[in-house]
């Protein structure tokens, strides 16, 4: 009886953590969120709030799945909790009982104090806007643009890496050469160059991140592909007469996924840093909507007194926790993959 129960439980778990379900949930969470941001859903525009209804349960379920499947490593679980805290905030924020983040109420109200009959948990900034709702709203655009940019950089980098590694020959030489040139730029210099040329916007950040990250991703995938290319199952597929694209996508890609997932977590962190930094430098996302980099930028000239330092510290803590989450996740996953 006991054994029987175990079997049932295991299959249910497996069903829940199976790739298809996970992908479906990621899709359910991600597409509405991106659509919400791209269509212009914002604190002042509630027309698209309905888009986020399916995303909330999907995000919560994904969090549970991640916690269950990574329960061996507390580091991964901690990182996952930090990341999903911000993800869930990002999908829930239009429905939370928050003050409009762009509405000036009373400037320079300290943390946990009351003014004009409104209690401000995290105070207000120099323009009198509520810090709590600004921090919570601020995560949305960073996450959406950061993850989308990393994803696109990954797709392009992986295609180039598979081509260079599998086809090799002149293709490899050419792709490697172009990537070497891009890798010669210090990243921030490359970002500044691209964004000066193309102008500052969320979409252009994606382009800049792709240019900066795809070469490094290509190198990793190329190395892994070289390693795996001579395995028997690839020869078997070649003998079956499969096309090179089939072999690359179906045979090679799933087998190089382990190191790639770890690298992707790290790179998500880098991209988030890059976006926040670029916004801080005035080259990224533009005002007035809340964003962490923008909050630091706007508060920097104001917060010259310890009393007002919270305006700088709060967004800094927010961005640090998100990046720490990505890095801990990468660390935990690496540890687990080494243990296997």
């Amino acid at each position: 009886m006991n054994i029987n129960n175990n079997v049932v439980e295991k299959t249910l778990m497996q069903k829940l953590t199976s790739l298809k379900v996970t992908f479906a949930l990621i899709f359910l969470m991600w597409v509405p969120l991106v659509a919400f941001v791209i269509l212009g859903g914002s604190p002042s525009n509630a027309d698209y709030n309905w888009l986020l209804y399916p995303a909330i349960p999907a995000a919560v379920l994904l969090y549970l799945i991640c916690m269950i499947s990574w329960r061996e490593s507390w580091i991964a679980m901690l990182g996952c909790t930090l990341v999903f805290f911000w993800l869930i905030v990002a999908v829930c924020v239009p429905f939370l009982p928050l003050i409009d983040p762009n509405k000036p109420i009373a400037p320079y109200v300290g943390i946990m104090s009351e003014k004009k009959d409104i209690f401000f948990w995290l105070g207000t900034d120099f323009k009198g806007r509520d810090m709590l709702s600004r921090v919570l709203w601020g995560c949305q655009r960073v996450i959406v643009w950061g993850v989308t940019a990393t994803l696109i950089a990954y797709i392009i980098g992986a295609i180039l890496g598979l081509l260079a590694g599998y086809v090799s020959g002149w293709m490899d030489e050419f792709i490697s050469f172009v990537c070497n040139i891009l890798l010669s730029f210090p990243i921030m210099v490359l970002f500044i160059l691209i964004l000066t040329f193309m102008g500052a916007s969320g979409f252009n950040i994606i382009v800049a991140v792709t240019f900066a990250s795809a070469p490094a991703i290509m190198r990793i995938v190329r190395g892994l592909t070289y390693d795996i290319k001579s395995r028997d199952y690839v020869f078997a597929a070649q003998t079956r007469g499969e096309s090179p694209w089939y072999i690359m996508v179906i045979e090679l890609l799933p087998n190089v996924r382990g190191p790639i997932i770890v690298d992707a977590c790290l790179r998500l962190g880098y991209t988030t840093v890059a976006i926040t930094t670029l916004t801080f430098l005035g080259l990224g996302l533009q005002p007035p909507d809340p964003d962490w980099g923008l909050m630091i930028k706007e508060a920097a000239p104001q917060a010259k007194l310890l009393k007002f330092a919270y305006m700088l510290v709060i967004p800094s803590i927010a961005v640090s926790t998100l990046i720490l989450g990505f890095n801990l996740m990468a660390d935990g996953l690496r540890e687990m993959s080494l243990r296997d």
Binding site: G269, V273, T276, T277, F280, G293, I296, K304, L305, L306, A309, L312, V313, S316, I317, V319, S320, I323, L324, F326, N327, L328, D331
Partner: peptide, 22 residues
Amino acid sequence: VLTTSIPEIATAVFLIVIFGLF
């Protein structure tokens, strides 16, 4: 892991607040 996870802006902010303001 902790120190590399905190981006330069945030590190700078924390240092300014601790050593400069406090």
